[in-house]
């Protein structure tokens, strides 16, 4: 599994309120919600994002509310992957559970610049910044979590067990 695209770069502590503001949470329709993805931090994101594009952010990405709508709108915008220095724990869990690819890699998140062309190999954890020519290695997921991802999310993996 791979992703390749242009980078949208964000700072530390991007919270779920700016990823999807609560004023839109009166629906659970993913397509409707996705129109407002990143609206309060980057109003242009939904206009500019192309399938496969990559979010790169600092520490504690996805902090705050447990709303699964946050990874859901990022996934629905067909973002290929989120790379961050670290993820807030509920966001991390939710991303895995719904099958949004995420990678923790502080060096990559520090050095990759907004607008760079980046490719990611999820099997190996290899991140290549095509623009700068630099490569980075993200920590691969433990097997328990890889299983969830390979099954297509938590519920699919549970159904498989049953």
């Amino acid at each position: 599994m791979n992703a390749k695209g242009k980078v949208f770069k964000y700072p530390d502590n991007v919270d779920t309120d700016v990823i999807i503001p609560a004023r839109y949470l009166n629906t659970s329709n993913a397509n409707e919600l996705a129109l407002h993805c990143m609206e309060d931090i980057d109003a242009d994101f939904v206009k500019k994002v192309q399938p496969g594009d990559i979010m790169v952010a600092g520490w504690n990405f996805g902090c705050g509310s447990s709303r699964e709508h946050a990874p859901l709108v990022i996934k629905t915008c067909r973002t290929g992957c989120v790379i961050a220095k670290s993820f807030a724990r509920i966001f991390y869990r939710n991303a895995i559970n719904i099958g949004l690819p995420i990678l923790e890699c502080p060096d990559a998140a520090e050095e990759i610049k907004n607008g760079d062309e980046v490719s990611v190999n999820f099997d190996t954890g290899l991140i290549v910044d095509i623009t700068s020519g630099k490569t980075y290695n993200a920590q691969p997921f433990p097997p328990f979590i890889q299983n969830i991802i390979k099954s297509g999310g938590l519920l699919a993996s549970l159904k498989k067990e049953v």
Partner: peptide, 10 residues
Amino acid sequence: TGVGSTDMAA
């Protein structure tokens, strides 16, 4: 602890 909706469903 807090979790997301998929965890709640499971």
